Computed example of a mutant assay.
Amino acid sequence: MNNYISPTNLGMRYFTVFFLFIFTLSGFSQETSVKGTIINDNTLLPIWNANIVNTNKVRGAISDSKGNFEINADVNDILLISCLGFQSIEIKVTNDWIKSQNSRIKLTEKAYALEEIVIPPYTLTGYLEVDAKLIPERENYWYSIAGLTKRYEGGENSPNAFNRVMGSLFNPADALYNFFGKRPKELKKLREIRSDENLRNILQNKYDRQAIYLMFGINEKELLEILERCNYSEAFTKSANDLQVLDAINGCYEEYKILKKK
């Protein structure tokens, strides 16, 4: 019995094994995704322009005119689904969902109550010189640090800003630095937000901070503490959208790294 294998046949066998190995790796490296249709819980009509955020993968998607969407996701990932006028919901991705590749998701409309309008107690005379003295003027100050392009707001909008700036410089156990220094996964998410345009567009229109809380595993109190350490005013904290908040935190962390090195 002849067991001789020619170099040509041996080379073909090695090539086949190598090809199968590469094919297997490419199969494992492919990202999985889920599809779904978002509908109104009451009318059962599709909801377009709904926001879908994968808080684990830091990815975003928007439903089309038929309520359909597709987003990268693995089993156990949490999707935050929201839309203006509807209650936001959190959904965990399951094996069944990935296999079926479609799921109908119902959103419930919010019930709105009109808030009372409060008119400021200023009696104006119509004369500019007199009225200018009746309305109190807010004075705000800005503090800056040599070597950094960013300024810090003070005054009535942000009292004690100067003390917080100086405390940030000389406090070696700074809350922001310690927070991200001990949570590299969260820091990676913070940087990945720059690369997903869909997610950035979604966060630019969100003000509820839900996506921030889920993505970084923090609560409202911790977020306020981080923004305070970054010397952002209460006015900014209340008026900024979610994207502005995350960009502010990211810029703040980069500045703190520079200060720590110096």
Rank of each mutant, 00 (worst) to 15 (best):
S233G: 11
N2R: 13
G251I: 01
V34M: 08
P184D: 07
R151V: 15
Y122C: 00
Y127C: 00
L148S: 00
V245R: 01
N56S: 10
R194S: 10
I71P: 00
L259A: 05
Y253L: 07
E70G: 07
L84C: 07
E234P: 00
S63T: 14
K206E: 14
E186T: 06
Y4W: 07
N163A: 11
I78N: 10
E90H: 10
N250R: 12
G11W: 04
R138L: 14
S65R: 09
M12L: 10
R13T: 12
N205M: 11
W142T: 09
W97D: 05
N219C: 07
E228M: 04
T16Y: 12
E197G: 03
I119S: 10
Y232E: 13
N241V: 03
T108I: 11
G251W: 00
N178D: 09
S88V: 12
I71R: 01
A111D: 14
A61D: 15
R194I: 14
N76C: 03
L20Y: 13
F180W: 14
N54D: 13
I39T: 08
E115V: 09
V58T: 15
L45K: 15
N231K: 00
R138V: 14
Y141V: 07
I91Q: 13
Y112Q: 00
G154K: 03
E153V: 04
K257F: 05
N9Y: 11
L134F: 10
S239T: 09
N49T: 08
V75P: 08
E109T: 04
P120W: 03
S195W: 04
F19T: 13
Y141N: 11
R138M: 11
Y141R: 14
R59N: 02
G60N: 05
I38Q: 01
G11M: 09
N157E: 05
F179A: 08
L223K: 00
K110R: 13
A50E: 06
E115F: 01
R138S: 13
L227E: 07
F180E: 04
W142Q: 11
Y253E: 01
P159W: 12
L44F: 11
S144Y: 05
G126I: 00
D208S: 07
Y213G: 02
L114M: 12
L214Y: 07
S82D: 08
E129Y: 07
E31M: 05
D208K: 02
E70C: 02
E192T: 06
A146Y: 14
K206R: 15
N76Y: 10
E156Q: 10
N56M: 09
N72L: 14
T43G: 05
I212V: 08
E139M: 03
F23M: 14
N42A: 12
F162G: 02
M12W: 05
Y177L: 13
V93S: 06
A175R: 13
A111M: 12
E255F: 04
F170I: 10
Q87Y: 15
S233D: 07
E186C: 06
F180L: 09
M215W: 02
Y256C: 00
M215F: 05
N3P: 05
A113H: 09
Y143V: 06
R183P: 03
S233H: 04
A132H: 08
L148V: 07
S63M: 04
A111F: 12
N95A: 08
T55R: 08
G85A: 02
K66T: 15
E222T: 11
R200T: 08
L259M: 10
W97Y: 09
F216W: 02
N160L: 11
V75A: 04
F170D: 03
V165T: 02
L134W: 08
